[in-house]
Design a protein around this nucleic acid. Sequence first.
DNA 1: AACAAAGATGAAACAATATAACATTACAAC
DNA 2: GTTGTAATGTTATATTGTTTCATCTTTGTT
Lengths: 163, 163
Amino acid sequence: MPPKKIARIPEHFITERLACAARQCEERGAQLTELRREVLELLLRHGSPAKAYDLLEAMRAEHPRVAPTTVYRTLDFLVEAGLAHRIDALNAFVACNDATHRHHTVLTICARCHRTEEIRDEKIHRSLRHGLQATGFLADSIEIKGLCPACTGISNEDAQSAI
Amino acid sequence: MPPKKIARIPEHFITERLACAARQCEERGAQLTELRREVLELLLRHGSPAKAYDLLEAMRAEHPRVAPTTVYRTLDFLVEAGLAHRIDALNAFVACNDATHRHHTVLTICARCHRTEEIRDEKIHRSLRHGLQATGFLADSIEIKGLCPACTGISNEDAQSAI
DNA sequence: AACAAAGATGAAACAATATAACATTACAAC
DNA sequence: GTTGTAATGTTATATTGTTTCATCTTTGTT
């Protein structure tokens, strides 16, 4: 089993990200409604990739009658607005914590512990862009599956929890 | 709608890939059973990413009582054996047509037409490896979503068919 | 203010994708 | 020929995601 990571998320970080999201939406003429703000907050507090149906459950604490559609619609909005990412490798979603707007998103996803990181190193982005240039392919988002640094050593003992 | 691509797949290519797959399995002590060979053949003939349930239907032409489990298990085997790739972005599978064994797989997936290509250019692989080195992340497979060369021009007219 | 249009949400049904659990068969090793 | 292992069969069920249509809200316009 992946080690349970209880990464304590500081409150000020949440409020700051929410405020930033509000600004971003305003600028783009998008409506960060109460519903959308709540889902984004859940994602931020979750801190790691969250499943749509887990979010649904969480939503129901406040809004007992929420349906899957609502959650998926809201997540679509957040992804569209650049406030969250969908992770195909996990069928899950994470809040985006990169306020700057980049060309494309690059995520690393650990097959063992599911830890997911957004790569922001400009050098890596450049080398990706550069490498792809010859192919004529216009990249939008990139998912890199493998083993995170913490899991590289221990992956053989129990390989059963791979993606 | 994505343009219907009727890429004619030469027969000799299929048989050659199947023979090669048999060799690869033998070398690795894996059993390319009749069932597995058939699924691989379906994948090869399909030529583009195939859904598990489409393969299931196709299987049923010959074996009317095949269940989803069977197909998924067989696909797992093929992926494990390096004979096929799972494409998370599409929930689909493609036959691998790269006999050489690489460190990792790099796929580009067009969000509009779903055309999927395996990048084999060693320069790109190197630059990916190199870029990631600093992060300590050990990459296994990479999915790059975006627009293929053929779709870059026309993506705005009908953006509805994006992934 | 009255209205229309667009955007957002509610609600129910359902479709698509994937796995669990357990039984059975095939085949090699002893 | 018994035993062990890998492969397959079978049924049921879990998970993930979409369609469709109704209703409500906001915004801009006359």
